[in-house]
Structure formats: C-alpha cells, structure tokens
C-alpha cells in the first residue's frame, strides 16, 4: 500500500552533523526527503532524455519516415542538433526546461512551452475538481465501511468498489457520455474549454470528465482508507477502548482516526498522483484540451520534444505529490518524529 514512504525515507542521502540530527530529528527527516526528491527529479530527467536515446530506433529516420535517404538523415540530424553528443544536448535541454523552454515541436514546428502553458492549467483544473469531490467522499465512505464492518453497508461498499476498480476509465467515460450527453442531452460533449471561458460554462463542460475521474479514483482510495483504518483497529489500544466500554464511533473518532491520519494522507496523495495519470485517458475520451491529449498525440507521431517535455512534467508532479505525502506523514506520525 505505501509504495513510497517506508523504503524511500530510509537512505541517508544528506548526512547532517549528529548534533543537528539529534536536536531537530523532524527537520532532518524532512530535509532528507527534500534532498531525495531533488535527486530523484534529476535521475528521472536523465532517464527520460538519455535513457530514451539509448533505445533502438533513430530519431532522424523516424522523423523522416519513408523518405529517409542517408543524406536527408544527416541533414535532419544537423538541423535538429542530433549530431552533438548526448551529454551536451541533455545539459542544453535541462537548462532550457528549467527556464521553461522545451524547444520546438517536430510535428508542428511551434513552441512546446506555449502549448503546455495553455494545456497544463486545463489538466490541473480537471484533476483539482476531481480531487475536491473524491477525497472527502472516499475518506467518509471508508469510515462508514469500518463502522459497519462485515455488515450490509460494508459488504455493499466492498462489492461495489471491487467492481469499480476493474472498470477501465474509458468504459466509465463512454457510459456517462451515452447516458448524460446523448440520451439526456443535459451536458455538452465533447468537453471543449477555451481561454476566457466563463467559469460556469467551464464547470459544466468538465462535469462528465470530473465524474469519470471521481468514480475511477474513489474506489481505490476508499478501499485503501478502509484497510488503513482497519489495520489501526487491530492494535491493542483499540481492544482496550472496546473493553472499557467506549461506544465504537467514539473509539474510532478518538483513538483510531488520529493514528490513521498518516496512512490516510499517504492513500490520498498516492491517489492524487494516480489522478494525474488518469487524466491522460479521460482527456482523450472527452476530447479535452489538456496535457494528456497533447502527449498521446505526440506519441502517435513520435514527436520527441513534446513527449519528453510532457513526460518530465507528469513525472515531476507525481514525484512532488509523493514527496508532500511523505512529509505530511512524517509530521503526522509521532513514531517517525522520534526514530530509535
């Protein structure tokens, strides 16, 4: 369940002086986590740029397709700067990326950054809307499931969420489109948004994509929340609370919830990170002008600058969300604050 926290917090990447470490264990842990994320970001950028070049398949021949004569390939390589060594190009690419310049698209010869600037906001808006609905709903339902554990509401939630996990995003999306957009005609499809669109229209346009994302991510989050609370419920102090006659809702509220906060934060962040990925498919289904659609189109025509830029941005958001989850969990968990 905790994909990141346990293993990643351990390696001491930034050895702090022992005095500092002893006096500020919390700050040390957080600093370590920040350092690790920075390291990870650099490694990921290398993987996305250099690692991809090591794979078979020549960019220049891909770029030219059928018309790849040796001279044309050589020309294109010089044109795109592919004749320079990989290390030089990586440094150029990364310094450009840090300044918000991702170069030119091979397919449209337009600035990648400009496209991304338009689309990143759209994607984040969609993911944010989904998160605002899904997080409280999932945590609430997870608690209900624990409260009615092994009784009808719990079993119902269990079965429905098991089914929901297995639904592919595009199936949920088209089902919603068929019912709400085609049969009832109550929401617009495709979900077009444009610059300067009034907020209400924009919300109406993203209603179905948001609902799809919520449905997809809700089941995961709910099941993980339930598992997190239940593992807390199995601890001896919960048995004590039960034995001393505390009503179960009070026991959950006073003893289980404070201890379950750290795992729940982890669950939420993991699923928010998952939302970032779910956005890709949902955007394609709803023809929504976001980052995901942009990336998929670029992959189809093998437009590498766009693919690498989108890949780096998606990975960075994912890493940052995981980092925030770990830091929140460190702060919320007294055990981690005083490591032995």
């Amino acid at each position: 369940m905790t994909i990141f926290s346990s293993d990643v917090t351990k390696p001491a990447s930034t050895p702090a002086p022992p005095g500092f470490r002893k006096r500020f264990p919390l700050a040390t842990l957080i600093a370590q986590r920040l350092g690790l994320s920075a390291l990870l970001l650099v490694a990921v950028s290398i993987l996305i740029f250099v690692g991809v070049e090591a794979l078979p398949g020549d960019f220049a021949s891909t770029y030219l397709g059928q018309a790849a004569t040796p001279e044309a390939v050589a020309n294109i390589r010089a044109d795109l700067g592919l004749d320079k060594p990989v290390a030089t190009r990586y440094v150029e690419w990364l310094s450009g990326a840090l300044h918000g310049d991702f170069g030119m698209s091979w397919a449209s010869h337009a600035s990648v950054s400009q496209q991304i600037a338009n689309r990143l906001g759209n994607s984040l808006f969609l993911a944010f809307a989904a998160a605002i609905i899904a997080v409280p709903l999932a945590v609430g339902l997870g608690m209900v499931a624990v409260l009615f554990r092994n009784r009808v509401p719990d079993r119902l939630i269990n079965v429905v969420s098991l089914a929901a996990i297995s639904l592919p995003e595009f199936f949920v999306g088209y089902l919603l489109i068929l019912f709400f957009a085609v049969e009832l005609g109550s929401v617009p499809f495709p979900a077009t948004v444009y610059r300067g669109m009034p907020l209400f229209d924009r919300l109406e346009a993203i209603a179905l994509p948001t609902a799809t994302l919520v449905l997809v991510v809700l089941a995961h989050m709910l099941r993980m929340t339930r598992a997190a609370i239940i593992s807390v419920m199995a601890s001896p102090y919960m048995e004590t609370a039960e034995l001393k006659g505390l009503p179960s809702y009070l026991a959950i509220l006073r003893h289980a919830v404070p201890n379950a906060i750290a795992p729940i934060i982890n669950v939420v962040a993991l699923n928010l990170a998952y939302l970032i990925v779910g956005v890709v498919v949902v955007e394609v289904v709803f023809v929504y002008p976001g980052m995901g659609q942009y990336m998929v189109d670029a992959v189809t025509v093998r437009d590498m600058p766009v693919v690498q830029a989108c890949g780096l941005i998606f990975a960075s958001v994912y890493i940052l969300l995981n980092m925030m989850a770990d830091i929140a969990a460190i702060i919320a968990n007294p055990k981690l604050r005083h490591p032995r």
Partner: peptide, 25 residues
Amino acid sequence: LSRLNDLMMSIPTLIFALVLLAVLP
C-alpha cells in the same frame, strides 16, 4: 537493484510506457 527500482517507480507507469512507445518500433 532497489534504488533502480525506486527510480523506475517514481515515473507513473502509463507516462513511462508512453515515453518508451514513442521511441521503440
């Protein structure tokens, strides 16, 4: 192996697959 694994898991699976499929035949 573990650190390499951490690195690969730090990129979402779908995004990683998209990047790879853009290059590979």
